[in-house]
Computed example of a mutant assay.
Amino acid sequence: MAGTWGRFNITAIVLGFAFLYLPIVLLIIYSFNESQLVTVWAGFSTKWYAAMLSNRGLMDAAWVTARVALLSASVATVLGTMAAVALTRYTRFRGRLLFSGMVFAPLVMPEVITGLSLLLLFVAVNFDRGFATVTIAHITFSMCFVAVVVQSRLLSFDQSLEEAALDLGATPVKAFFQVTLPVIFPAVIAGWMLAFTLSLDDLVIASFTSGPGATTLPMKIYSQVRLGVTPEINAVSTVLVGIVTIGVVIASLANKRRDVLKRRAEKLA
């Protein structure tokens, strides 16, 4: 019976991973296809990557996406870290429940609702849609993910270290930057990478908040896919998959390093 259940579990895992990742593997393989037909293999070639680099529309969209992702991830990391510190250190203050709900609402809010509400806000205040509105929208929905990651690290942080720094004459701000921040820095980096990859991948919210000259790469890919999938789109998607994979790996390594440092600190204590 145990052997049967073992084979069943292995089969289920294999089928699950195949369902999730086989389409991505096929997309990567066919991005090196010589033929223009994405379903017919005609030999290995990298010409579609060269075509991708010479496509002005795709490169402009990629540049917009990179700028939005870098700026929104950086601002979201600062705001998310501040929110996590406030929720962790100040457990009782008036409006804490409302503040917590507002910080974490984008986690459960459908992207369509978030995008539509932001669109109505920008229209109400007569704010022209473009690069700035897309960046603000990405900060809004990615900040909560940073707050979750950093808060989980702060909950296990030994506050006696910060209290010792305060007793030695450090100001609260100096104690935070010289004692607390170095300890939680791997979590901050993990939150930044998560916010960066979420910004790169966003289509729905950017569709609501973008304007002329602010077309992101997922929006460009989606508009071209509706006319038919080409190996050039496969090449662009492969590059995106590679960037997101690198980001996930870096975030995982940062979390692993955080766990190692935590175990070493526990042993020393």
Rank of each mutant, 00 (worst) to 15 (best):
P231A: 02
A42D: 11
T238N: 00
L166H: 09
S152K: 13
N33I: 00
I139S: 02
F185K: 15
K174R: 15
V75Q: 06
Q36I: 08
W192I: 06
L268T: 07
V179Y: 01
M1N: 06
V25W: 04
P218W: 02
V125H: 01
D158M: 04
V148G: 05
S142W: 00
A124H: 13
V173A: 15
M143T: 15
A132N: 09
A69I: 04
V150N: 05
A251G: 10
V14H: 11
M102K: 00
I24F: 05
A42L: 01
I184E: 06
P23C: 01
G57C: 06
F131E: 08
G6P: 04
R258I: 11
V40H: 07
T4A: 15
T216L: 12
I136K: 08
V25S: 10
R7A: 11
P23F: 01
I243D: 00
V249N: 06
G43I: 01
V78Q: 03
F104V: 00
E111Q: 14
A269V: 10
L268N: 09
L155Y: 12
G101L: 06
L120R: 11
T216E: 14
T133P: 03
F99Y: 13
P23Q: 01
S35Q: 12
T91Q: 14
L194Q: 10
R153Q: 08
S72W: 02
N126T: 15
T135E: 00
A61V: 06
L53K: 12
V108I: 05
K267Q: 11
V78A: 08
S237K: 07
L79K: 03
V249F: 09
Q178A: 15
Y30Q: 08
Y222V: 00
R264H: 04
A235Y: 06
A84D: 05
S210Q: 14
C144G: 10
R153V: 01
D128F: 07
G101D: 13
G95A: 05
P106T: 13
F122T: 06
